[in-house]
Amino acid sequence: MTVLPITVGILVAGGIYLLCQPGLVRIVFGITLLSHGANLVLLSSGVSAWRGEPLTGTADPADAGDPLPMAFVLTAIVITLAVTVFMLALARIGHDDSTRHMPDTGENHRA
């Protein structure tokens, strides 16, 4: 028996539920939850049995966690930040984040 997969499942379920909602802010929240879930999946791939910090000289290498997924997750977190911020910028256009209708962006599509 193990716990992390359940955590992943809950995060994914919540993320997907929010992703299907009609407001961009909730979609952004959903993506945040999904990325938490995805990050935990990535870390699980390093096998959560070894939880020593991967700092040479601190932990016994035999007990240290896999640093590679950690590096992946670290960059993923920062990219999530960037994407979240970008989507929030879109959400604020017109002071309305509803995805049921497009905000008027003043763009003329038929030049």
Binding site: T2, V8, G9, V12, L40, S44, V47
Partner: peptide, 15 residues
Amino acid sequence: GLGVAAGVATWLLTG
């Protein structure tokens, strides 16, 4: 559905 599938897959494919 996807939550359960993701959880099961994580359990099955890692560790």
